[in-house]
Simulated scan of single mutants.
Amino acid sequence: MKKIFTILSCFVFLACGSPNETASAQIKTLVPGDNAPSFNLKNVDGKMISPEDYPDAKGFIVVFTCNTCPNAIEYEDRLIALGKKYNSKGYPVIAINPNPPSPFLVFSGETFSKMQKKAKTKGFSFPYLFDKGQIVTNQYGARATPHIFLLKKEESKYKVVYTGALDNDAWGKNPELERALYVEDAIAALDSGEEIKVASTKAIGCSVKRSFGGLLE
């Protein structure tokens, strides 16, 4: 009975979000100027993907996104369009799911099989990677879905030059809003050798769920 109570207590805390907030507060988010670590993660097609697989890339649009967050879903078509526009220009999109898979509660929609279904249904033209153990998620300090890190390739290193939101329209439902294209503007500045005017914004979306030592894996 005590064991059952303990497990149920964990689920209550997870649902309320307090432990998740505590865990996230202890993780540093990369900021512009920081070096970003490379990674080698499993794609939805079963192949391992890393930045080194793109020798001609000038940089990368790394986006931490997921299957179920309403904001992440809203941005899917815009990410697809972004990938189609910038892959040939040297800035491929690489998507990473930061949430731990689990058969329980709200986490059941983040399993690898559902990532595969999402990529197929939406016709993702970019890799959608599974971050087992949230190692890369925590190295980058991703906070929300979606959370973008624009990287500039410098020889064998990757430097963060922009982090935050894709644009200023999280829901895409405001026709009167003058959309600020943060990522596209940053890439344009990079290619022209100019300073990036807006190098950091707040990532708007659902908070990344931390696994608490593998509880949710």
Score class of each variant (00 low, 15 high):
Gln116Pro: 07
Lys114Pro: 03
Glu178Phe: 07
Leu105Val: 10
Ala119Val: 12
Asn138Trp: 01
Ala180Met: 10
Lys120Asn: 10
Lys117Thr: 13
Thr145His: 11
Pro127Asp: 05
Gly141His: 05
Lys152Leu: 08
Phe126Gly: 09
Gly133Ala: 05
Lys153Met: 05
Glu154His: 08
Leu150Ser: 04
Lys159Met: 12
Gln134Phe: 07
Phe126Ile: 08
Ala119His: 09
Ala189Pro: 01
Lys117Gln: 14
Ala180Lys: 15
Ala189Thr: 00
Val136Trp: 05
Leu166Pro: 04
Gln116Phe: 09
Pro175Tyr: 04
Asp191Thr: 06
Asn168Phe: 03
Phe130Lys: 10
Phe107Met: 12
Gln134Gly: 07
Phe130Leu: 11
Glu176Leu: 13
Pro103Gly: 05
Glu184Ile: 00
Val183Phe: 01
Gln116Ser: 12
Ser200Asn: 11
Glu155Met: 13
Tyr128Val: 09
Glu155Thr: 14
Phe126Arg: 06
Lys114Ser: 10
Ser108Trp: 03
Ala144Gln: 12
Glu176Asn: 14
Val198Leu: 03
Pro103Phe: 02
Arg143Pro: 02
Leu181Ala: 14
Glu155Lys: 15
Ser156Val: 14
Thr163Val: 13
Ala119Tyr: 07
Leu129Ser: 08
Tyr182Cys: 09
Met115Leu: 09
Leu105Phe: 12
Glu155His: 14
Gly164Arg: 01
Glu195Thr: 15
Gln134Tyr: 02
Leu166Val: 12
Lys157Pro: 07
Ser192Lys: 11
Ala180Arg: 13
Asp169Ala: 09
Gln139Gly: 08
Tyr140Val: 04
Ala165Arg: 11
Pro175Trp: 05
Ser200Lys: 14
Ala142Val: 04
Leu177Cys: 06
Asp191Cys: 02
Pro175Ala: 04
Asp131Cys: 03
Lys153Tyr: 03
Tyr158Pro: 07
Arg143Leu: 15
Ala142Leu: 06
Lys157Asn: 15
Lys152Met: 04
Leu190Asn: 02
Phe107Gly: 10
Trp171Gly: 06
Val198Gly: 02
Ile187Gln: 00
Lys118Phe: 05
Lys157Tyr: 10
Pro127Val: 07
Ile148Thr: 14
Lys117Ile: 10
Ala189Asp: 00
Gly164Tyr: 01
Lys159Asn: 13
His147Met: 12
Gly172Pro: 03
Val160Tyr: 04
Thr163His: 06
Val161Leu: 02
Lys197Cys: 06
Gly141Met: 09
Ala142Trp: 01
Asp167Leu: 05
Phe104Ile: 12
Leu181Tyr: 13
Lys117Asn: 11
Asp167Met: 03
His147Glu: 04
Thr163Lys: 07
Ile135Phe: 11
Lys114Ile: 06
Ala165Asn: 10
Ile187Phe: 00
Ile187Thr: 04
